Amino acid sequence: MAAAAALCLGRAPRPPRPLVVILGATGTGKSALALQLGLRLGGEIVSADSMQVYKGLDIITNKVSPQEQRLCRHHMISFVDPLVSNYTVVDFRDKAVPLISYIFARDKIPIVVGGTNYYIESLLWKVLINTKVLDRKVELEQLDSAELHRRLSRVDPEMAAKLHPHDKRKVARSLQVFEETGIPHSEILHQQQQEEGGGPLGGPLKYPHSCILWLHADQAALDARLDRRVDDMVAAGLLEELRDFHRRYNQEKVAENRWVSSHILSAPPSGALHCCTGDGCDPLPLLLQAGLPAWNLPVHWIQGIPRVPRQ
């Protein structure tokens, strides 16, 4: 309609608005770039982060601040209860795709940003297969890894060869696809790729006018930036956030007898928790443990420990 009106007035129709996608490793500046583009282009930001969909833990998942959200509208952040264990990429896609259409309908530019690539892939390409029995995948994941992989090997050897036997989530997903459709998962993916506009990454692009920005950073600069980020997280109240999360959610899981015993951590043998920062080791695993209030241990920060070289 707008294009026809423009032609009647003698103006060239405006090109369709693009879908902007920003991805890259943690710490490369995705959120900052998305905010700048959103402000300059009049866009709205759609988060594609599998951890930021959950309520709480704003610091450790590095969510954008309330001030930043007021500068530019953000979507798909903090709307899933952390006790929900069956939120999937299909759920994400089914909520995000109509949202993107809504943003386009208001003549704005959707800016998808996040570090969960398979969430982004679900928006860009026709790659997902809808399944009907919501609890079947959970049931399959209860099987032994070797048995689960053997079952997949019998019905879809190509997909089984691609998946690690211990990747129960993906193995169970492929087995569920076969159980519900009678067609091997790998064959369905090949069919999608062979559709017009399809390719190695999946079926046709959902949004033909896409601008994809993949951010990179020098490794030394990235290491320094992430070290500073951890320090900033601690200063912003990371330990308090983790303790509060444990009180509100983990204790509720215990009360409902849904606590997974493998997730229960025992206290360290020493009387204090030693963390290192600066050029030293990554303190996040220890910080997570420190969130368990039963420990109530003092935290000592050790500066200047040489970083272990990456293998």
Rank of each mutant, 00 (worst) to 15 (best):
L9D: 13
G10F: 03
P15I: 03
P16I: 07
R17K: 15
R17T: 03
L19S: 06
V20N: 01
I22F: 00
A25F: 04
G27Q: 00
T28P: 01
G29M: 08
S31Y: 02
Q36R: 14
G42F: 05
E44C: 06
E44G: 00
I45A: 05
S47D: 14
D49V: 03
I59W: 07
I59E: 05
N62G: 05
K63H: 02
K63D: 04
V64Y: 05
S65T: 15
P66S: 12
P66F: 02
Q67L: 11
C72Q: 11
H75V: 07
L83N: 14
S85L: 13
Y87T: 06
D91L: 12
F92I: 05
F92K: 09
D94A: 14
I100A: 11
I100G: 03
F104Q: 02
I109T: 13
G114S: 04
G115S: 02
S122N: 00
K126M: 09
V127D: 06
L128T: 15
I129K: 08
N130L: 13
K132E: 12
D135V: 06
R136H: 06
L140K: 03
E141C: 11
S145C: 11
A146N: 09
L148P: 00
R151Y: 03
S153Q: 12
V155A: 10
E158V: 09
R169Y: 13
V171C: 07
R173I: 08
S174C: 15
Q176Y: 01
F178T: 08
T181M: 07
I183P: 00
H190Y: 06
Q191P: 00
G197W: 03
P204L: 10
Y207A: 08
Y207I: 08
I212G: 04
W214Q: 13
D223N: 13
R225A: 13
D232F: 04
A236C: 04
G237P: 01
E241F: 06
L242G: 02
D244V: 11
F245H: 15
H246Q: 10
R248W: 00
Y249V: 11
K253C: 10
K253F: 00
A255N: 07
E256C: 03
R258G: 15
S262Q: 04
L265Y: 13
A267R: 15
S270A: 14
A272I: 03
G278P: 00
D282T: 05
P285C: 07
L286V: 08
Q289G: 15
L292D: 15
L297V: 02
